[in-house]
Amino acid sequence: MLDRVGAVTVHQGDCLVTDSPDVTYSTVLGSCISACVRDTKAQVGGMNHFLLAVQSSSARDRFGESARYGAYAMEQLINLVLTKGTGRKSNLEIKVFGGGNINASITDVGAANAAFVRAFMADEGYVATSEDLGGAFARRVLFQPFTGRAFVKRLDSTINEGLMREELAHANQSIKPVEDDIELF
């Protein structure tokens, strides 16, 4: 879906990868995290957007992990870029964004998400080439996978309240099983 800046919007739970020189990915983050991963030799890259580091025990469902959660979202993005690219981890460039504390009156989910993505990358042997994590603000992130350029705009606090409500609504959604083995969300 193209947004008003002519970019493909990456929503919570999305993981998109391309080798097109004409594609720009865009997302808005509060406490969520987006990783931008690029194979520098193959000029293939993508962006994910995850809501929480892991599912809470109270939110676990029979469908297991999904791209709304950090470990799955990171593995999915890295594997897709490796598969469409050269297949060499040494060619990957990773940039991470988000993890803002957009509502000081609730638990700092953003800090937990930022800690998760840093730990995940360290455990997997990756080093972020750039990051913009934490703070008390939302962000709009644009990423051009072909070139690897990323742009971040810190958004004013009036956006934070609506974004927080949207993130909480997504976090509280439960996926319902369907007889055809299709998941509706």
Rank of each mutant, 00 (worst) to 15 (best):
G110C: 12
V10H: 09
F63G: 05
N91M: 05
N91I: 07
L80I: 08
V117Q: 02
S31M: 06
V117N: 05
G6E: 13
L16A: 06
Y69K: 02
S31E: 13
Q43C: 07
V17W: 02
N79Q: 15
Y72S: 12
S105W: 13
S26R: 06
T24Y: 06
I106D: 11
I102M: 08
D22Q: 07
G85I: 07
V54Q: 14
C36R: 04
D61S: 15
M74Q: 14
A67I: 02
T24A: 08
I102D: 04
S90K: 14
A104C: 04
G30Y: 01
Y25N: 03
V37E: 12
A71V: 11
Q43E: 10
S20D: 14
A73C: 09
Y25R: 01
N48K: 12
S34D: 04
I78D: 07
A112M: 10
V23Q: 09
E75C: 08
R38I: 11
N91G: 07
A71C: 14
T24N: 12
I33M: 00
A53K: 03
F116D: 06
G87M: 02
K95M: 15
L51R: 07
D39F: 04
C32R: 01
A59K: 06
V96D: 10
A59D: 14
G70A: 09
G64Y: 05
Q76H: 13
S31L: 04
V117A: 01
G85E: 12
